[in-house]
């Protein structure tokens, strides 16, 4: 195969494009801009860390099932870890959202970064909701019977039946986590490609340079 033919292959073109957009030193940088040394920039990674804990404890719950998380001490503990890591996840995500809103984090060509964050937030709300109706206890029965009237009023009850335990569990442990994980990965990649948004008084640095992340 000639060099020209190799260069024309889609795998070669994709590799060159990916390496150009996100070289390893930009994917895992050694340093960050000086304005990042503020507590407000910590909440993004706090959200990501708690998401990892949510997924890990969710996997343990999926392995052992409801009789374990309702009927054993260690099951109760893992169930509580799953709940409280979700609480920390939303707490950190809301503070991250406020911080990014007030710094106008969509500036300098970062619209896609902002929008993937917004959609991840909405997907996370739906994941939490389907989690609450999948607990298989009186609380989940109460929530689902209350929610059904709201969903039915929108006309969506035929497709998204909150009283259907199997459907809600599948949404909670398969579809929505997949959406949340894909969007979060995309969000983090975009943050690495475009760089962390600088403060307003450093507006000249907001625009992404041809070298990539802002300095």
């Amino acid at each position: 195969m000639s060099t020209t033919e190799i260069e024309r292959q889609w795998t070669t073109r994709l590799r060159h494009r990916a390496a150009g957009k996100l070289p390893p030193e930009k994917l895992l940088p050694d340093t960050q801009p000086s304005y990042v040394s503020s507590w407000i920039y910590v909440f993004g990674v706090a959200t990501l860390s708690s998401l990892i804990l949510v997924i890990a404890t969710g996997c343990l719950l999926a392995l052992r099932g409801p009789s374990w998380w309702h009927g054993s001490y260690i099951g109760h503990f893992v169930n509580s870890l799953h709940l409280w890591s979700v609480e920390v996840f939303f707490f950190a995500m809301v503070v991250h959202l406020w911080g990014k809103f007030f710094m106008g984090a969509w500036r300098g060509g970062r619209t896609a970064t902002w929008m993937t964050g917004v959609v991840t937030f909405l997907a996370s709300l739906l994941t939490a909701f389907t989690g609450y109706v999948s607990q298989s206890n009186f609380d989940s029965q109460w929530i689902s019977t209350q929610a059904k009237d709201g969903i039915n009023a929108t006309g969506g009850g035929a497709y998204f039946n909150v009283l259907n335990m199997g459907q809600m569990l599948m949404w909670h442990i398969v579809l929505l986590p997949l959406v949340a994980i894909i969007l979060t990965t995309l969000h983090v990649i975009l943050v690495r490609v475009k760089g962390v948004v600088p403060p307003y008084d450093d507006n000249a640095a907001a625009t992404v340079t041809t070298e990539g992340a802002t300095k």
């Binding site: 503020s38 507590w39 407000i40 910590v42 707490f91 809301v94 503070v95 406020w98 911080g99």
Partner: peptide, 10 residues
């Protein structure tokens, strides 16, 4: 608590 954390972070 979220508002307090936000202000403290700033």
């Amino acid at each position: 608590l979220m508002i307090v954390t936000f202000v403290a972070a700033l």
